[in-house]
Design a protein around this nucleic acid. Structure first.
Length: 420
RNA sequence: GGAGGAGUGGCUGAGCGGUCUAAAGCAACGGUCUUGAAAACCGUCACACCUUUACAGGUGUCGUGAGUUCGAAUCUCACCUCCUCCGCCA
């Protein structure tokens, strides 16, 4: 959500932003609703002021007849208020609905583009492995080594179901232990955060109302969050933080649930796109400064790049184009890992910053040095998500015989240098 | 699942139809005093929105929403959250 005053004063900016993001939003509709809302407010507030001043007079009148007259007169004022208040309620409801749809303005540095095809590579790291044989995909490798069981996964959990078994489970835990150590060294507070969350948290983080179809919902009207970001961001919702306590850096661990409603035909096999997975998410709340947000955005991205490098996984970083940005995002980098079997890079991380788009909805504020209340800025990036990261990890380290070389940093956790 | 109790400013907590413009205390901040600090004393101390170039004025907010009333922190209803006891339980 953006500040209505800002929207009023920057109509063209909002229009340009929406266009760049390929989001259809009519600002003039919102401004018209706002004009109506304010006109009604002025009328109502004037009447209330009249009513309030009469209250004092009624108290002072001792003569019962005069008093009755006063009260009768006030009743008239009140009756005329009721209709206008009802009208304001309607107008405000419509206004709020529109406010939730206003897209945040993308940064100047975000390239133009329609979809992920318009994303631009900004960094690459690592040499793509050259195999003297035809590389196998992670499904074949994992099944042969009994690291995963997809047939039983489907039997038990349905479409996109999977089990990690034996060394698959061991490898997965090794990644987690390495990640824990790695990110704790970056100043993050580790947290286990809820996946089962209330609707407000999803509205606050900007996943609702648009993403209703992507979310699992319970019979109690709670939701299964698709990312730990939701609960971690909401951790401080409604609170006033101390400026000296910023930035808040959280490393949130949680199971993540996604219905993948719009991607039924994509990545249907293996662990690329599953309904249920685990993720460490990096979250930062910082002071309300564009420069500080940009600095932390780079930092969050570099943290993840470094992590991938510690695992020796070749990857690149792309800056997402306007058409590939979400409603609230100002700028986003995706980190994509090299997947030999597909001869392409696939997304493993997504780093975005929002300015105060999320914190305005979540009402997370701090008192600035000038004594003013400000909404903090918010950012997030994946730290690591499994089992997806296992795909590049396994495929890039495969040998001709189908065994897998274990990266140096994981050997201590696994207790061996190869899986065979 | 059942029974009871409670939600008031950063915190503690009084108020239970009009005098609430929400007592008091603590914390915080500014000042006096001091070589410096502590103590003491004096002062400041919620947020949001609307009107206004500004000065200033107005409205709303006592968990949330609806209702009763000329008037609600105070009465009624629903919901949310927390606490206590019983039951169930990793």
């Amino acid at each position: 959500m953006l500040d209505i005053k800002f929207i009023r004063e920057n109509k063209e900016l909002i229009e340009m932003g929406a266009k760049k993001k390929h989001i259809a939003f009519d600002v003039s509709l919102l401004l018209a609703a706002d004009d109506k809302r304010r006109a009604l407010m002025i009328a109502i507030e004037a009447k209330r002021a009249e009513q309030n001043s009469f209250n004092d007079k009624i108290m002072q009148v001792t003569d019962p007849v005069e008093r009755t007259n006063f009260i009768a007169e006030m009743k008239k004022v009140k009756d005329s208020l009721v209709a206008e208040e009802e009208q304001l309620k309607e107008v405000t409801k419509n206004w709020q609905l529109l406010m939730l749809q206003v897209p945040n303005i993308p940064d100047m540095s975000v390239p133009e583009g329609d979809d992920d095809g318009g994303n631009r590579e900004v960094k690459t790291w690592g040499d793509k492995p050259v195999f003297s044989f035809k590389p196998k995909d992670h499904i074949e490798l994992m099944e042969k080594l009994k690291m995963a069981d997809f047939e039983r996964g489907a039997k038990v959990a349905g479409f996109r179901g999977y089990f990690l078994t034996g060394d698959g489970a061991v490898l997965d835990f090794a990644v987690w232990q390495h990640a824990m150590k790695f990110f704790a060294g970056k100043g993050f507070t580790p947290m286990f955060v809820p996946s089962l969350v209330r609707r407000e948290t999803l509205l606050g983080t900007g996943y609702l109302p648009q993403g209703e179809d992507d979310m699992y919902k319970t019979q109690d009207n709670d939701y299964l969050a698709g990312t730990g970001e939701v609960a971690a961001m909401s951790f401080y919702s409604g609170e006033v933080l101390k400026k000296e306590d910023l930035p808040k850096k959280i490393l949130a661990f949680s199971p993540c649930f996604r219905r993948e409603a719009g991607s039924h035909s994509k990545d249907t096999n293996g662990v690329m796109r599953v309904h249920e997975f685990m993720k460490f998410e990096q979250i930062i709340l910082c002071e309300a400064s564009h420069e500080v947000s940009v600095r932390f955005h780079e930092e969050l991205t570099e943290n993840a790049e470094e992590f991938m490098q510690s695992l020796g996984i070749p990857h690149r970083t792309v800056v997402n184009c306007g058409g590939d940005l979400g409603l609230g995002q100002v700028k986003k980098y995706d980190i994509e890992a090299w997947v030999p079997s597909q001869n392409t890079y696939r997304e493993t991380h997504s780093a975005s910053y929002f300015h105060d788009f999320q914190t305005r909805r979540l009402n997370i504020r701090y008192k600035d040095t000038d004594g003013k209340m400000r909404f903090t800025h918010s950012l997030n990036n994946t730290a690591v998500a499994t089992p997806r990261v296992l795909i590049p990890l396994i495929e890039n380290n495969q040998r001709e015989d189908g065994s897998i070389n274990v990266p140096e940093v994981l050997r201590a956790y696994i207790g061996k240098d190869s899986i065979q």
